[in-house]
Amino acid sequence: MDNIKMRAKLTGDNILGITEVKMIMNHLMETGRKKDDFGQLIPAYFIQMVTAKLNDKIVLEMQWGTGISKNPYLTFYLKGASLNDRISVNWVDNLGKTGNGEIMVLAA
């Protein structure tokens, strides 16, 4: 499993404030259209599904194609989180490999 680098910062009060979640994933995100140095096509290899949860509740479900840049970067925003809540992210790529990351909500 590849880890996801994550950060979650709450601005304002618990529950009422807004939590900014940033992440960067380690993945080549190959389109399947690029050729290597020997002129051979590099097979498609990319993250297809990503799920983000606040504690155990799903907050964001994503489907990705080959058009997301290499080493995918994402920021999203959340209402209803409190300090020390747990935010977790899981991905699955087209070859069935998975990755995950988890972080606690901290004060901004």
């Binding site: 807004i18 389109t31 983000a52 606040l54 509740k57 799903i58 907050v59 964001l60 479900e61 994503m62 080959t66 058009g67 997301i68 840049s69 995918p72 970067y73 994402l74 920021t75 999203f76 925003y77 959340l78 209402k79 209803g80 989180a81």
Partner: peptide
């Protein structure tokens, strides 16, 4: 797809 308090706002990088 957003649910359970996720705001419809995001930043990402595309090709």
């Amino acid at each position: 797809v957003f649910s359970n308090g996720a705001l419809p706002q995001l930043v990402t990088r595309i090709k």
